[in-house]
Design a protein around this nucleic acid. Structure first.
Lengths: 230, 230
DNA sequence: CGAAGTTTTGACATCGTTCAAACAACGTGG
DNA sequence: CCACGTTGTTTGAACGATGTCAAAACTTCG
């Protein structure tokens, strides 16, 4: 899946120096382009702070047998720190062509602290999602999160989002299988809660309903395509 | 359940020994006793850094409908930071009589940063456990973690731990139900992997086997009391 | 001994996974 | 421009791990 961002020029070089911008370190390029699938900061030796300008990053953790848990999805405006000593614990990769600003945490201590705090708060919420929610709640929460991070122009007053994640990414993020993600999304679609024709552009048709589902109010609980309910 | 201190283990954490650490604000006591069930730092107005001297803390997050996710368990030697602006997001409570040292993060910036980093790394690992592991793997990993954090004297060369968590705490930590936790522990006991008579003192009879299970090598996979296997 | 809380056990239900196949989208080469 | 291979998505059927419900067993403590 090639997410060529509409307004995003495709650049031939993964690394690009933008001369006009101030940064933390004097000896490093300030802006960096990462292609889909590429890892971020894998070769760095010192701690780095990245701010996403455009695109989408996934923070993930691998088990020995290949199981993967995506612990956070990062969109434009958010910052993320990467420690080299994370030792296989945590990696970051781009899910689309992504432009990041590279900062020096030592030169931006306040931002670094804020970044760490936000990461902690989001991870705490996500752990609760992983440990204590069912499939419908997980997917609903995921969609609401992504709608905030990757908004497109409203369509008939409804929120629209760019879905940079494949079903596989969603599954690894939400602690499900791709089949369950697909079934749940299609169930939402059938119920008129969301809509999509292209797999990467999703409209929240009934955001309030989605919020209800996300917080565990399931008047219509069943996720499975059941005969009883439309 | 009255967990009157397991004898203070030799503190594993290197940071603890620093003699020159600045303590909390000058107008506050440095040591604090928390009773089981009591919340930590609920009434504080400024960020706090706590170091567990003895006992056990649980970091948890509540959903509106009462579901609870314990995101970390903190034992002697470890530090934990608490931000007042966490707004219902994250609370900390003692699972036994717990003695903590209260520190000012502003006066201990390095320790504060290390604490945040460790919290992040542990949460990342725990998210993977919650999202991608089955019950046996979860319980095995939980036991190994607790064995490091709450060690007692070896028994016949085998690790022994003080289990400050109830089945309910374990369930909320590992993203399971109390019944599944109980069944899994008893399965491990039946298989001779662990042993316990009092519910709070657990011996790892075959730590290597437990590590295998924890990392997904299940030659004997089934957790339920199944007729097929002894 | 009796009451209250916790843990264990059993029987059963179900949600999510697994396995398998069809379908759709897309790029490539003829 | 179309056949084809590749990759991702959807759908169905069946299974099984874990949850739910209920009751018994055990612990603790008055």
């Amino acid at each position: 899946m090639l997410h060529v961002n509409a307004q995003q020029p495709i650049l031939p070089h993964p690394l690009l120096v933008h001369p006009g911008l101030k940064s933390g370190t004097a000896d490093k390029p300030f802006l960096n382009f990462i292609a889909p699938g590429e890892d971020l900061g894998a070769s760095e030796t010192s701690p780095r702070l990245y701010r996403v300008i455009d695109g989408c990053l996934a923070v993930y953790h691998l088990l020995a047998d290949g199981r993967r848990q995506i612990t956070d999805i990062i969109g434009p405006g958010r910052t993320i720190s990467q420690q080299p000593e994370d030792g296989g614990n945590r990696s970051i990769k781009a899910l689309t062509y992504t432009e990041v600003e590279v900062l020096d945490p030592a030169a931006n201590p306040v931002l670094a602290a804020e970044t760490a705090l936000e990461a902690l708060m989001r991870l705490t919420r996500h752990a609760t999602l992983l440990g204590r929610m069912n499939a419908a709640e997980k997917v609903a929460n995921g969609l609401l999160d992504l709608a905030e991070q990757f908004p497109r122009k409203l369509r008939q007053g409804r929120p629209v989002l760019t879905l940079y994640l494949t079903r596989s990414d969603l599954a690894d993020w939400l602690g499900l299988t791709i089949e369950t993600v697909s079934r749940t999304l299609n169930q939402f679609k059938r119920e008129g809660v969301i809509d999509y024709s292209h797999a990467e552009i999703v409209t929240l048709m009934r955001p309030e309903r989605l919020k209800d589902i996300a917080s565990g109010n399931h008047p219509t609980a069943s996720v499975r395509a059941s005969k009883g309910k439309a």
